[in-house]
Design a protein around this nucleic acid. Sequence first.
DNA 1: CTGTGTGCAAACACTTTGCAGGTGT
DNA 2: ACACCTGCAAAGTGTTTGCACACAG
Lengths: 142, 142
Amino acid sequence: MTEKHDKVVHQLSLRNTRLRDEVVTHFTNNAGRAFSENELKQVVCSPCDRTTIYRTIKTLLQKKFIHKVVCENGVLKYALTPPGASVANHVHFECTRCEKVFCLKEYSLSLPRVPEIFNAESFHMLIKGSCKECERCPSKNK
Amino acid sequence: MTEKHDKVVHQLSLRNTRLRDEVVTHFTNNAGRAFSENELKQVVCSPCDRTTIYRTIKTLLQKKFIHKVVCENGVLKYALTPPGASVANHVHFECTRCEKVFCLKEYSLSLPRVPEIFNAESFHMLIKGSCKECERCPSKNK
DNA sequence: CTGTGTGCAAACACTTTGCAGGTGT
DNA sequence: ACACCTGCAAAGTGTTTGCACACAG
């Protein structure tokens, strides 16, 4: 909306369109959470095509502004890459009730050791359980 | 084929059909690897419908004979549950070249600590890199 | 014979691609 | 003005469901 966010889009060498501004703003305002294309489409005000969301995601991925999280059921979600962080080796948390996914940027692990027949380069860690909100209130809320 | 495998199917309280026998045998003969529906369909001799493979997978999952692995691209694969092991908290390895997935049953981790706002119950760890076969030979082999 | 397993058709969810027209710079 | 962005249509992949028939027990 404001110049501040325009700048983010521009810093990424991207054109400042309404959709991109909304998506980028949403990621920065919800830095600890990951969103699927579906979730993004719902939070974005301006009506837009799913294709465009996918393409926006792909663009932001290439710029490493966001990183990918693979959820329990195979759905892909995306979260803001914490400033100064790598896009790999984050630990994520998926609530099995509300299905929200969070990026635990403070909880990076080191690459575990593996048998010698493998050459490990990176990892993807998804912790499952329930978030406090769901603990408190038994009804399933998205 | 033999009585030995018939028994496995029967131990699971399932009817001994040709497809199930083939699938169960394949999992036991390749205990360290995970397979997608697609991969299973290719290794199974008798022609069969994809639906049936999916249903067989679902049945074997319920019996906890196999467990699920979520791959980097969101595709689901399945591997034999090591005898005496839980179906959760395994560590898996995915080769980024040949895309084979392995179950590192010896490398179970303990559940990492997470911020207090989360109640962790289980985790899913996927290590990525290259397997020895792909290291040796640069050509992409499936 | 009975309940379970299977094939077929259809549908669904997620994702990608091609093309034509619209918009930011 | 040009390159890039978007919407629409279509297709591809992975997965599930309903129904009728086949087969293991």
